[in-house]
Nucleic acid binder design. Structure first.
Lengths: 184, 184
DNA sequence: CCGCTCATGTAACTGGTTACATGATTTA
DNA sequence: TAAATCATGTAACCAGTTACATGAGCGG
């Protein structure tokens, strides 16, 4: 009986990504992990304290990470590092993109809006598209700069940035088609 | 005092999309709206009953939609249609993609996995990429078929499908670069 | 020593989900 | 008439969020 922690064998996406960061960046504090999400250009997770701190405790309860005290001053501080079972879990998460949802169509909020564009007067619809195009161009410039001059020296960083560039270009090209359609 | 419904002036994305469907597809039942999400290729929302039914009540409480009884048999049934304030809200939601999150970098679960690909033995990493590529190609074929022969006759349907095609092509191109990198 | 940022942590809320319960309608 | 499906609805849960509380360290 009792509410003993069941040995979960799968992780949510956020759990897996945190596990991956702990694995890659060696022993690190929760705060450093939060920074990872804060600096990320994709707003999928905010890295809020309310998510990260309890999550790390959960991972430790499951034996996927271990914590070591690291008091460089008077401040309490924990360094988390990955434990062998954590590596197994992470590998498993990595090697199973077979679940359809990973390759399913990405959610594009601009596409979600498109369906109802008829509700707007034509001029406003065009403004909508023009504004979005402008913002996407700004993002693209940022990403291209990051590609030429990457901050993070990770082995896959440039490919990750490349993903952003290609996706953004696709959206720009699409929005141009939308603009052409509205003009016709 | 009391818990009078505050007249909200903004909608969540799901609320807005439901509102849009009600606007576009005329008076319709909650079930029809759920079908809309079930048939959608993007898994952003499941259209679960627990989401849709309470949501529609909420929208009616706010005066954005109105319901009319539509008993074609013994079964209780409500048809929802959009109310003038709902149109206003929907227009407002449409015309403000200025919020950065709409043009922010899309979340790609494949990119999220990429960062930790070093954890896998090279052969497994290649399998990962190959499997994902295969699935994306399947999706692309489906989308291209839908583009040539659309089921939904909406004015923007083909552009929506086009969005999916361009995004999927971008991901395929990217995964090919990943494969090349792994082979090098 | 005052105020700002760093860092850890918790409480309350939110926007969904899955699973279930119920009954009407259709089909074999 | 039994089984399957259509359709409505609720309850319990869940993975996040925002907002807040606390205190260390550090610069003026």
């Amino acid at each position: 009986m009792g509410n003993t922690q069941l040995p979960r064998s799968a992780a949510t996406d956020l759990e897996a990504v945190v596990l991956g960061v702990v694995w890659r960046d060696g022993p690190c504090t929760p705060y450093a992990i939060r920074q990872h999400f804060r600096e990320s250009p994709a707003p999928r997770w905010s890295g809020s304290a309310g998510a990260i701190y309890p999550l790390l405790k959960r991972l430790e309860d499951r034996g996927w990470v271990k914590s070591t005290a690291n008091a460089t001053g008077r401040r309490r501080q924990l360094d988390y590092s990955i434990a062998p079972p954590g590596k197994t879990i992470l590998s498993h998460w990595l090697a199973t993109p077979n679940v359809e949802s990973d390759t399913a169509l990405l959610y594009d909020p601009l596409r979600a809006r498109l369906f109802f564009l008829d509700l707007l007067p034509p001029a406003k619809a065009r403004t909508f598209v023009a504004t979005a195009l402008e913002q996407l161009h700004t993002h693209l410039r940022t990403e291209e700069a990051e590609y030429r001059n990457p901050r993070d020296p990770g082995r896959f960083t440039h490919l990750a940035v490349r993903n952003g560039i290609l996706l953004t270009r696709a959206r720009i090209r699409w929005l141009r088609e939308v603009a052409d359609f509205l003009d016709a």
